[in-house]
Amino acid sequence: MKIALPFFAIAAIVAVIYSGVKFYNLQIFFGIVLPYICFTLAIVGFIARIIRWAASPVPFHITTVCGQQKSLPWISHSKIESPTTGMGVLLRVIGETIVFRSLFRNDRASLYKDKSRVIYSSDKLLWAGALLFHWFLFIIVLRHLRLFLEPVPYWVITLQNMDGILETTIPGVYISNVIVSLSVLYLILRRFRSRIRYISLPADYFILFLLGSIILSGILMRHIYRVDILDAKAFIMGLIYLKPLVHEGLGAMFYVHLGLVSVLFMYIPHSKLMHMAGIFLSPTRNLKNDSRMKRHINPWGYPVKEHTYDEWEEEFKDALKEAGIPLEGEDVRLRQ
């Protein structure tokens, strides 16, 4: 149910766009109206979500420390895993975002039952799969810049040439397409494994199927349902300069691809994909480990009911006297 439903949802989206364009000539709606609406919602939603996060303060200093603290000068401290400087925090957050530092720690616990023992084995597959997926998706996005920029910057052309270096077919296969497809397949397949399936929600499958279908439609457009690249570019430049115009040469697959991307964008602010921004705001990672060096202020801190020393002394006066513990105001020297 939680797998079938998102699958059919994606299939339905594809079918609606495809038939809308193919049989009802709704190019203007799916090629122009829908992208404008979705991109607007995406940008507004994205910013609104970040503002909402940022509006909630960080009342306490809750760094998760993963290395030796800075204390005595002769103990070498971990400058990134237990940062005390802005640079240290920056490197820590960069490490999390570009090489997935924390995910790299992953290991797997399993039980040797006959020996009643827990064992840990290195488990870097998730790290590798996630890293490949994110990086190569990023490369694909950069490659798409050739459709958005005129003139096309030199580095985009270089990137594209490097990506297409395996000229095995015509048109050439992009390495990034292969890797992204395989890594999405891996991410989908692992969600079928029982433990991950147990914790997964329909939304987790939806997003993977959506990404998968975007990748698939892109690849189909390049290798099978060919789209004239110049037409595509002219169309996209029209969208960007707010002079949208429907071009004849763009097949239904182009609209499917564009429509799916639009749906993805619209969905981002309401989905777990917001982790792309949230990771920078995570207080366990973006705070220094300096909470004894510098006072952290809680903006909503309020006075609380305390049991003061005077009240305490009043309650335990006899016991204190019996024990010979000095009372407030009493001169200690007299007693000794």
Binding site: R49, R52, W53, A54, A55, S56, P57, V58, P59, I62, S102, L103, N106, R108, A109, S110, L126, A130, R195, I196, I199, S200, L201, D204, K272, M274, H275, G278, I279, L281, S282, P283, T284, W300
Partner: peptide
């Protein structure tokens, strides 16, 4: 508490259920 704690708000929104924490 959502208004008072960024951690709460953020941690409610960004988990991708990757499962890395499961056996930790």
């Amino acid at each position: 508490l959502l208004k008072k704690n960024r951690s709460f708000r953020l941690f409610m929104d960004i988990c991708v259920r990757c499962g890395a924490c499961a056996d930790k």
